[in-house]
Design a protein around this nucleic acid. Structure first.
Lengths: 346, 346
DNA sequence: TTGTAAGCGTTATCAT
DNA sequence: ATGATAACGCTTACAA
């Protein structure tokens, strides 16, 4: 190495400047430089600050956050862990999270679990390994105690039982009730229920709840047409077809989300029936595509962006203040009436 | 501190174990532990490896990637910089990127520019500060030399002129030509062109190109109805309305992407015209909502997921091998005929 | 095969 | 207000 002329050496291996280089350039110690970039406004005279800033500019110095994290045990990075960014529900949530995190200069690392326990496990380990400052997660299989053991501030996306963490979401029962009541108000007495198949979650209380809402309106379960289908468009289409082959049809169909509703619409259309004249259909979530179907889909709007924003704010508070009280933010959903539902005409 | 009983001390300040703790537990040196977790398969006897692994398990050790990065100058993190994850084109691209990066244990940090130069600038600085290993970016305003000066491996999303980086995208001219030719093949001779307004990009050669394709089919620019609109649904709706108020209409409309096409469809519908009987409409991208409109939208499919995958692979090669040859991957788009286009019936 | 020790670029503590 | 110095947890020559 010593055989290389100095110029070549310094040229070929030129590395990014450190505070030491800046310190030299400005004729101060590196502690002073550090104080300047910390920008806490204390401990540096205006003149030296000026000189340091000049040197920083001169050399094109940019602070090494890795080294900083090493020392401070803060990475100013968080992880957003969702099932699948490709699912139309999540991008808006993600954007809400990012817009808040951006303000404070936090980096947001994305992770998709695909509803698989193993993936979830592996990115949680990654979060730990990266010394992430906090996690916003829509948990799929991980239990409360596993999450607790990470010793990382966490905010849950969605309202879940059995978790001692901050959470933000909508009350999906309430949303479903609103949807069903909308159908009931329109005079429907025979209603189809299209449920998505849940990953082996413990006991599933959705159906009993839906039936109870209908029962409250005097609709017996004999007048309900229930199918449980894979949580996607095709699943719903096939499920709906199954309903339509019976000798009696529902006059309205409630679907647990818009994707399922769109599948149902397609099935109804290809059966030669019209929406909403023959059958009304209602979904949940209000994804983008819900507004562009024909007729446009009546649905329960969930404020996705707002959910992301709230989750991010909660997480930041948690990171900064080490709060212990549990917060639970329930953002309200609301019915958006469009063309896919109408009065029942006998 | 010395006054605290040892147990309390170690309990209250228990921190995550380091390789030193593991080393002690296993009765080896920390370098040995390091070798074990590096898992390069060399330099450690099976027995000691076994003991170390046990200790790791015992203590619940997980490697500190921050410290590791500090030493190796590799963070195993990359940044994905796009305009807006909320735009239906990007989630699939993002997913492609992540699925590849996951395999190698790279963390993916998201950044949204919102087509704003200042945001783009700030997250590029963040990338540098975080010592990101590579960047996949759909550039909005940043120039080649700015990107070069980052000294970070970069892959561009989309085919751009004047950049010396690897890039992957579709040939959008070719896609547009396919779309226009589809319209021409169907017998249309008067066509509307709905263009999205570009951020102050230098000279815009799109329109001349479209016109030349039409001219090749003998369609004069007098028979073209061109509007340039804000790159969103409303913009397109209004632009289309403007076209429809003239005394002569096009019989087909080409839109630069599906969102614009959906806006156009809505305008055409509310003008009381039918698609495709009165007017054919074609879009580009093949976003999810394109398949759920009524009629379903004919469009040019762009393999979004594949774009993400290719970009990620290119970036990884770049990071690992420090290639210098420039690669340019052009994934092919293709026409997907659906219900929104039909033969011109005079 | 294993251990010793020197950094990586910051920040925090303690002097001055 | 400023400077010297010791960590932070890991990797990697080099030595043994």
């Amino acid at each position: 190495m010593g055989t290389f002329p100095r110029r070549f050496w310094s040229f070929s291996l030129k590395k990014r400047p450190t505070i030491i280089d800046v310190a030299k350039e400005a004729g101060v110690s590196k502690s002073t430089v550090s104080r300047v970039i910390a920008d806490s406004g204390q401990g540096v005279s205006p003149q030296t600050k000026e000189r340091v800033l000049e040197a920083i500019n001169e050399l094109g110095y940019v602070r090494d956050r890795v080294a900083s994290s090493m020392r401070t045990a803060r990475t100013h990075s968080i992880m957003l862990a969702i099932p699948d960014i490709t699912n139309p529900f999540w991008p808006a949530v993600a954007r809400g999270v990012q817009d808040i995190m951006d303000i404070e200069g936090y980096a947001v690392i994305f992770a998709n679990s695909d509803w698989r326990k193993s993936r979830e496990h592996s990115f949680l380990e990654m979060a730990q390994s990266l010394r992430i400052d906090g996690i916003i997660i829509n948990p799929v299989a991980v239990r409360d105690q596993d999450l607790q053991s990470l010793k990382i501030p966490i905010v849950l996306l969605g309202i879940h039982q059995g978790y001692n963490f901050d959470m933000v979401g909508t009350n999906s029962r309430e949303g479903a009730r609103d949807a069903l009541n909308h159908l009931i108000d329109l005079g429907h007495r025979r209603v189809g229920l299209i449920l998505g198949k849940r990953q082996g979650r413990n006991k599933d209380s959705r159906l009993p709840f839906y039936l109870s809402v209908l029962a409250d309106a005097g609709i017996s379960s004999d007048d309900c047409f229930v199918v449980t289908v894979p949580f996607n468009q095709n699943g719903s289409r096939e499920g709906t077809n199954k309903i339509l082959t019976r000798n009696q049809w529902p006059t309205a169909i409630f679907c647990e989300n818009d994707i399922l509703a769109i599948g149902a619409m397609q099935a109804v259309h290809s059966a030669g029936l019209s929406i909403p004249e023959d059958i009304s259909i209602i979904g949940m979530d209000n994804i983008f595509a819900a507004s562009t179907t024909m007729p446009p889909l009546t649905t329960i709007h969930k404020p996705k962006y707002e959910i992301g924003v709230q989750a991010a704010k909660l997480l930041l508070e948690h990171i900064k203040e080490k709060r212990s009280a549990l917060h639970q933010v329930i953002v309200s959903s609301n019915l958006v009436k469009r063309g896919s539902t109408a009065l029942f005409m006998p």
